[in-house]
């Protein structure tokens, strides 16, 4: 388990990373809110953001906060107060001044590619608009479009659905059961979408926090149905982590491959 970052690094140097995106999922990206169900006229939620193996222990990397996108109950963006980034975690506060549900997301998209130039293997990273930066003489160009999203949800007062509307880009979870109305032992239904369409037969990993204090990995392996629906059942109350990823092969320079990943932290309260 501890050798993986190193393997990945070697893979990237050798130009293999594009061929083994599942390795990139070996670490879990998460944002853990201090509370998910809140009351009062206004409140503050403090969020830890990290990339780790253990849940929810910050032991590997801090998560970058450049792609935070927080949506308020009225659908408007909410500006976080960034506390900072340490070696193992980033911390930010989210001011809650309106009643309803907030979606706290970190969403990133971009392009990466490999090509040969004068017999040398090159790696390239950028946005979709920057593909023209790749030198004209590049050969054997292989491009991959990537899209990742990490989320959590908090509610001040009564929950609402405005912030939960999908963007239609990448892999997304559209809650059927409200994500701040989750109770242990009660089935909760979620729909997964890929670029705005139901993501059928998608593999989902669903795991309770506290991995450090048990021997079992405790991962529930779930699969969405033809409508992209999956049912989550938390055997006990706690913070849970969920992730999924999907990928497709490209065809040369004209048709990039793609990969999309999604992860979320969901709190299930005791009945």
């Amino acid at each position: 388990m501890f050798a993986k970052p190193k393997l990945l690094a070697i893979g990237a140097v050798l130009g293999l990373a594009g061929l083994m995106p599942s390795q990139a999922q070996a670490h879990r990206a998460w944002m853990l809110p201090s509370m998910t169900v809140l009351a009062g006229d206004s409140e503050t939620v403090s969020v830890d953001a990290a990339i780790s193996n253990e849940l929810f222990v910050f032991e590997h990397h801090a998560m970058g906060l450049d792609h935070l996108a927080i949506t308020g109950p009225d659908g408007e963006p909410v500006a976080p107060s960034i506390i900072g980034t340490g070696k193992y975690r980033s911390v930010f506060d989210v001011p809650l001044t309106k009643q309803g549900t907030y979606r706290i997301a970190s969403a990133n998209s971009g392009m990466m590619g490999f090509y040969e130039l004068n017999g040398e293997r090159k790696r390239w990273r950028g946005s979709a608009d920057q593909v023209s930066q790749i030198p004209k003489g590049a050969q054997n160009l292989k491009l991959t479009r990537s899209n990742s999203r990490t989320e959590t949800f908090v509610t001040l007062g009564a929950p609402n659905d405005t912030a939960l509307a999908p963007t239609g880009e990448g892999l997304e979870m559209v809650p059927v059961t409200h994500p701040n109305d989750l109770v242990a032992t009660e089935p909760a239904q979620m729909r997964f979408m890929l670029n705005g369409k139901p993501a059928a037969d998608l593999k989902i990993e669903f795991v309770e926090g506290g991995t450090r204090y048990r021997n079992e990995a405790g991962v529930q392996n779930l699969t969405t149905d033809k409508d992209g629906l999956v049912t989550l059942e938390a055997p006990e109350a706690g913070m849970y982590f969920l992730e999924a990823s999907a990928r497709g092969e490209g065809a040369g320079a004209s048709e990039p491959g793609w990969r999309a990943s999604y992860s979320a932290v969901l709190e299930f309260l005791p009945l």
Binding site: V37, A39, E43, T155, G157, L269
Partner: peptide
């Protein structure tokens, strides 16, 4: 008011509204 959600069942059934 901050601790009202600790009355978990009540909060979910009606308190939050």
């Amino acid at each position: 008011k901050k601790w009202l959600p600790d009355l978990r069942t009540w909060w979910r059934r009606s308190g939050r509204s």
